[in-house]
Nucleic acid binder design. Structure first.
Lengths: 336, 336
DNA sequence: CCGTGCTCCGTTATCGTTACCACACCGTAG
DNA sequence: CTACGGTGTGGTAACGATAACGGAGCACGG
């Protein structure tokens, strides 16, 4: 079915007896053109099998309607929710998300950012507030809005929509301590990669110190993303190395669920013998038995707020440059 | 930091004392240029803060290095795996995935396909083999490779990489029957939307009929995607409406896990009182207690094979137009 | 009857990169 | 010494849509 040559606006113009410019107007909503002319043009276009060519439009108008977005992994319900909220907010206005995966690696993020900027997006959204120096420079020099998410960066590049991962974990530690738990452990990933996970661990340590408790029960579950399986393995190690542990906070609901299943396989009662907390309010945490105490980071809201911020910026509307999201602690059966 | 005017290749050319054409060559790997010249150009580019402009390149070269992909939902580990495999295979060769979500709706798919084709991708990958007439026409007229996935279409548009959802479920029914189960139910979603889920249900009905068994135990769990919660609710309805059911096959591992938790909350032994089967080999199925019998649709492999097929097509290498994936039945504790 | 304001549409000149061709230079084989 | 293939570089002309500008047609009021 491939034609030798795809029809252009000029072809439609010839066929309809109007100028190319009028054809252009027919394809652009909100432009001054009579209904009759537009209908005739769209009909001719359909007959010729014409497909609007964004590449030419992009170059001439210097607008792509792309919004570039980097996330650590496509296979993570939290980030998927953020992208979902972002996508819904922006696609209603004709924007297209250009998505890239950093695989939890700042070097990869740098490559990705460079690649994405070449596409001339009209805004760029990155997950996290830690970047390589060159990535930072690229973002600073980009002449479009830059929004960091899922974090409260020490030195924001432009705008951000996020929350403090450390503070969020602190609120969970406070809950555990208030509930009477003292010997509390943390299961997390390799610190050098996942900076959000790393912040959560630091928040854990600081919060325990705050209560005058021992913060040495740290189990390294491996390289992010930490899977359910790795959560289970980590729980096995925790039970072996620190058998008297009363509660454990996991870097995510997924690892927390894995840890829970390990307890089930060993007949260790949860929360009777050990309480478990997760992070992220994944669906599984609300439905598993016992349900998991967790922190709702409001992933979808992060995406929606980011989307609305971008629209405000591109429409020259007044905007709030820094949006701080308030994570909510959700106490469920796994810790009571 | 926005400059009045971003530097172009011409600016670099002036600064380096070469022609714009040579600058162009410096940015394209595998082109005839001396190392010294290239290094000087790249250095000048870095100093000027130059960012390559794909939009102009796309127009001139009539190549975008985009591969368009539609999936039903971003928040689904199976499709995420497919996109992951696709992305990894293709990004190594410099291609960018352009992703869109149909939300399990063929009308939305049509809009999406039109939008994506305007970006002039070099190939388009769609999930599923059922489309609106117009969407089908758009794909047929697209002068680029079209690959349908996750299905074996009755009338393929171009190429496909997929499997028969009906046959896959049949193999699970055979397993249940062989294991001695007779009163078998199915939990699935609204038939009109998710065609893959619908095919699974039809496969279920056909397989039961094949064994001379009653296929009327069908629980409609709502509008796709079917969540864990909906799986749990469906299990509650199943236990109420057909209390003597011995086994149930769910449209996905997620709904199967939800169903399992409902049994746990009610103290219904699995598989002692009722056996459960899922679909998709999600991580949760392998780690929950009891682990779920499921079907591995090889989501990641679908993506990788699709990616390699695209590379073969774009490189004019000989290709196998139709790739049939063989789903594997995985028997676990939930059905034995 | 003309001036005024509005709607609709045509002409022209780019947007930044790259395909294509031409050509100069060098080393080497005949 | 000439012919020749390979290598590196420059000049020119698009790629297809659209911003900018202005012209033409029409209605209306004075």
């Amino acid at each position: 079915m491939r034609n030798d040559k795809a029809p252009t606006m000029a072809d439609i113009a010839r066929k309809t007896g109007v100028s190319p410019m009028t054809v252009s107007r027919a394809f652009k909503s909100g432009s001054l053109i009579s209904k009759d002319t537009r209908d005739a043009i769209l009909k001719a276009a359909e007959e010729l099998g014409y497909v609007f060519d964004s590449t030419a439009s992009n170059l001439r108008s210097q607008k792509t309607d792309f919004i570039a977005v980097t996330i650590p992994s496509i296979n993570n319900a939290n980030f998927a929710d953020t992208v979902g909220g972002l996508s819904e907010t922006l696609s209603a206005r004709g924007f297209q998300i250009l998505l890239g995966y950093t695989n939890y690696d700042v070097e990869e993020e740098e490559r990705l950012i460079e690649q994405l900027l070449r596409r001339k997006p009209q805004a760029i959204v990155v997950t996290g507030g830690k970047h390589t120096p060159r990535a930072r420079r690229l973002l600073e020099n980009a002449s479009v809005p830059v929004i960091e998410t899922w974090d409260v960066p020490a030195e924001p590049i432009g705008h951000f929509v996020g929350f403090s991962n450390a503070d969020a974990v602190r609120s969970m530690v406070d809950h555990f301590v208030a509930a009477g738990y003292r010997r509390i452990a943390f299961i997390g990933g390799d610190a050098s990669r996942d900076t959000r996970g790393s912040d959560r661990r630091l928040g854990f340590i600081a919060a325990l110190a705050n209560h005058g408790l021992d913060a040495s029960r740290l189990i390294d579950a491996g390289v992010p993303p930490i899977s359910m399986r790795e959560g289970a393995n980590a729980m096995a190690r925790l039970l072996a190395e620190f058998p008297d542990t009363e509660a454990v906070i996991c870097v995510s609901d997924l690892s927390a669920f894995g840890a829970l299943t390990e307890c089930q396989r060993r007949g260790v009662p949860v929360p009777g013998r050990i309480a478990i907390g997760g992070f992220g309010d994944y669906e599984i945490g609300g439905i598993c038995v016992p349900a998991l105490t967790t922190i709702d980071a409001q992933a979808r809201q992060i995406g929606e707020r980011t989307g609305r911020l971008i629209l405000d910026l591109l429409d020259d509307r007044p905007d709030v440059p820094h949006v701080t999201i308030e994570p909510r602690l959700i106490v469920r059966d796994s810790s009571r």
